[in-house]
């Protein structure tokens, strides 16, 4: 059971290859516009490609639970067309993981009170948490989180961080983020994209070694008290 991309190339990305086994986590880092979201969409089949294989299938060519149980992608923003679709109805759509109830997922993210609300009335932070709840209910083998903390206040960001680090519902989490401290504290392996190519793929310790950070971020990132901080 693995996620594998081999020599993927398009307008943005160049010869991207890596493999992730079920149970392993990954943080994907890189500058704006380097192709992180494109990579995520290729991996989950939203952008069709012959270079991707997830648990033995090409995700762009299979439908139904056959693909859904293997891979899932959470966009940076919750998009809902219908003005009256409730949070509960929205979550029902991704309820593949029957071991977890909708109430249980909402409780884990401290948003039980949103259950009956239309998705359109949620604030961006609430919408983000509802998206995360949908990922837990979906329970895919590989789940891609695209900027999961972008809209969260510090308290909720901290809660989400704990969830990402300790959660056992989702076997493999791939987190795209610009938050270096989050990436560091998660301790997941790191894939760093630079100019469309994989410039680094290895352990968290190796990536966050000060000399490596100095080389990649032009001396603008420091270790302070066990955190990685951008020096402004």
């Amino acid at each position: 059971m693995q996620l594998k991309i081999t020599d993927y190339t398009d307008d943005v990305l160049k010869q991207v290859s890596f493999t992730l086994h079920r149970g392993e986590n990954l943080v994907i880092l890189g500058a704006n516009g380097v192709g992180k979201t494109t990579l995520a969409k290729v991996l989950c089949g939203l952008i069709p490609s012959e270079c991707v294989e997830v648990c033995g299938i090409n995700p762009s060519k299979h439908f139904g639970t056959k693909r859904a149980k293997y891979i899932n992608y959470l966009p940076p923003k919750l998009e809902v067309y219908d003005a009256f679709l409730s949070v509960e109805a929205f979550l029902q759509l991704s309820h593949f993981n029957t071991a977890l109830s909708i109430e249980g997922a909402l409780k884990q993210l401290h948003v039980t009170h949103l259950k009956e609300q239309p998705c359109h009335t949620l604030s961006s932070g609430e919408a983000q948490l509802v998206l995360i709840a949908s990922a837990l209910l979906h329970g895919a083998d590989f789940t891609l989180f695209d900027e999961p903390t972008a809209n969260l206040d510090p308290v909720r960001m901290r809660k989400l961080f704990t969830l990402l680090r300790t959660d056992a519902t989702l076997p493999s989490k791939l987190v795209i983020t610009h938050n270096l401290d989050l990436a560091y504290r998660l301790g997941f392996d790191v894939l760093y994209l630079h100019q469309g190519s994989v410039a680094f793929h290895g352990s968290s310790e190796a990536f966050f070694a000060q000399e490596n950070l100095d080389a990649l971020y032009e001396n603008s990132v420091r270790h302070i008290d066990g955190h990685v901080v951008v020096t402004l």
């Binding site: 989950c44 439908f63 859904a68 992608y73 966009p75 998009e79 067309y81 679709l85 759509l93």
Partner: peptide
């Protein structure tokens, strides 16, 4: 019902949106 969200979300829940 999945189409009421977004095409991408519906696809990720296994729906063959085009078909």
């Amino acid at each position: 019902k999945a189409l009421l969200t977004s095409y991408e979300f519906a696809f990720l829940q296994g729906v063959n949106v085009k078909r």
